[in-house]
Structure formats: structure tokens, C-alpha cells
């Protein structure tokens, strides 16, 4: 790790010179933290105030905090169902995306597949495509397979559209694995599948976790597919349900949309706490290697 080394370059020049940049940087970062944390805190605060209190002063601490907005918006929008659905889409959709991407990533990183540049380039177009472009034809495809307004249908769409980024991440990760390891396996007569399953896959777990988490977040945030391919409210994910908060009826009451926002973020906060170390630590580094 280079942390200490980086800092040492500054340390070398005596104590004042080393403390000054650190102070300046810390100050700067405090400002940044305020920029990022401020809006979130404000929303949490707004969500437990009455509207009159909000209008009296948006920054004032709540005098008589209430959870009524949470209750109202929870039942008003049916957050129980929405959250359950989003969890289903995000867990299953990302699992599908990663599963689909594993072997291609293996092939593109460890083998000389003829035409691999073309295959890789083709998969990348999936990343460039604006979703609103593909709605009509994709709707056709889903209708053909009788997958409209089904959870399975949306899971498949999310899985397929998550795949290109997963191939990119996993391929990068797998290239960092030293070739000697699998060479030994091939010498012992292992098949491609055995090398993939017993050697590469276990070594790729950190990369898979990173990819899975990023994909989970992406599906959690998505709303266009859900909006167009689903009809029944019992299938709606949180984002589609939340669109109702973007009507001016809700926007005139402040605390309800704020409470809705907080609720919609809760599961991801939990996931975030559980996996943040994985994605922000060294595990990502393999994934971004060329």
C-alpha cells in the first residue's frame, strides 16, 4: 500500500510544512462533507417535522418530532410491497447479470477467443444504449415470451442489461490472476470447465461481490423499465411507486416526500453498511485493471 509513502513525501519537509496541507485538506474535506451530508440531513429533519414547522424555518431542529409522515406515506404508497419487490428485482437481477457474465469474462480474459475484440465491443454497446430507445422493441420481445407484467420478465431484463458492465468488471478482475496458476491445472489435465470452476471462480469472488453490489444498486435505482413493463401495482418496484411523490400534491406538503425518500433508501443503507468495505477496499482494484 502506498498511503504511508504518499504522505511521507510531505512529512519529509519538516513539521509545519506537513501539518499545513493536512489542515487545509481537512478543512476542504469538512466543507465537502457538509455539501454531501447537508441535503441528506435536511431531508431526514424535514421528514419528522410538521409542515407548519417546516415553513417556519427549514433549518430549525424539530420541536415536536413526529413519525406520522412515515406512517402516512408507508400506507399511502404501500411501501411494504414496493420494498419487497425492489429487493426481489435487485437480488435476482444482479445474480442473473453476474451469472451471465462469468463465463464470457473468463473467455475474454483467459483465452484467445478468435474475434474477441468484436464480442467485447458488441457487449459494450449494451452500455451505451439509452433505455428509452429500446422500450418499444423490448416490450415486443417481452410480449413474445409472455413476460410482460411479470416479476420474472423484469428480472431477466435487468439481468441482461446488467451483463455488459459485469463482463467489463469481471474481465478486468480475472486478467489480474497470474497465468501460472491455471497453467499448472492444465498440465495436470484439467478441462476448461474445471479450470473455470475450481481455479478462476474462487479467485474471482471479490470481483463478483463488487460487481454484484454495483448491479444491485443500479437495479434499485432504475425506474423506466419498471414503469413500462409492469402494470400491476403488486409488481411495482419502489422507484415506480415513488413517482407518485413527484406530483405537486405531495410536493406541497414537504414531510411526506421527505419521509418517502428516507424509507426508499433504508434497505440500500443496510446493504451499504454490510458491503461497503468490500467495494471500496482493494477488491475493486482488480476490476478496474486493464
Amino acid at each position: 500500500m502506498s498511503d504511508a509513502t504518499l504522505n511521507a513525501s510531505a512529512m519529509r519537509r519538516g513539521s509545519f510544512a506537513s501539518v499545513l496541507p493536512k489542515l487545509a485538506a481537512t478543512l476542504l474535506m469538512l466543507v465537502l462533507a457538509a455539501v454531501w451530508l447537508g441535503p441528506l440531513l435536511l431531508i431526514v429533519m424535514t421528514s419528522i417535522k410538521s409542515n407548519a414547522e417546516f415553513l417556519a424555518g427549514p433549518f430549525a431542529l424539530p420541536r415536536s418530532p413526529t413519525i406520522q409522515p412515515y406512517i402516512d406515506v408507508w400506507f399511502g404508497l404501500g411501501f411494504g410491497t414496493l420494498l419487497r419487490n425492489s429487493l426481489i428485482y435487485a437480488t435476482a437481477g444482479s445474480a442473473l447479470a453476474v451469472t451471465l457474465a462469468l463465463v464470457p469474462a473468463f473467455a475474454l480474459s483467459r483465452m484467445n477467443v478468435p474475434g474477441r475484440k468484436w464480442i467485447f465491443g458488441l457487449l459494450l454497446t449494451g452500455l451505451m444504449l439509452p433505455q428509452q430507445t429500446v422500450l418499444i422493441p423490448l416490450y415486443d420481445t417481452l410480449r413474445t415470451f409472455h413476460l410482460l407484467d411479470t416479476k420474472i420478465g423484469l428480472i431477466i431484463v435487468h439481468g441482461v442489461y446488467g451483463m455488459p458492465l459485469q463482463v467489463l468488471i469481471l474481465r478486468g478482475f480475472m486478467t489480474t490472476i497470474p497465468p501460472e496458476i491455471e497453467k499448472a491445472a492444465y498440465v495436470e489435465g484439467a478441462t476448461d470447465f474445471q479450470v473455470f470452476w475450481k481455479v478462476i471462480l474462487p479467485l474471482s469472488v471479490p470481483g463478483i461481490l463488487v460487481g454484484y453490489t454495483l448491479n444491485f444498486i443500479a437495479i434499485w435505482k432504475e425506474f423506466v423499465f419498471g414503469l413500462v413493463f409492469l402494470n400491476s401495482e403488486e409488481n411495482f418496484p419502489v422507484t415506480v411507486g415513488m413517482l407518485k411523490l413527484n406530483s405537486d400534491r405531495y410536493l406541497a406538503v414537504f414531510n411526506l416526500p421527505a419521509a418517502g425518500l428516507v424509507i426508499s433508501q433504508l434497505p440500500i443503507v443496510i446493504l451499504f453498511i454490510l458491503t461497503y468495505r468490500q467495494i471500496s477496499g482493494g477488491n475493486l482494484s482488480g476490476a478496474v485493471k486493464g
Binding site: L32, A33, W36, L37, L40, I217, W220, K221, E222, F223, V238, T239, M242, L243, N246, L261, S264, Q265, I268, V269, L271, F272, Y276, S280
Partner: peptide, 12 residues
């Protein structure tokens, strides 16, 4: 703190 908004839907 800085990473957190990445997890928020743009609707939110």
C-alpha cells in the same frame, strides 16, 4: 458520505 448518494435513485 461521498459514496452514499451513488446508491440513491435519481428520482429520490
Amino acid at each position: 458520505i461521498v459514496f452514499f448518494p451513488v446508491t440513491m435513485s435519481l428520482i429520490a
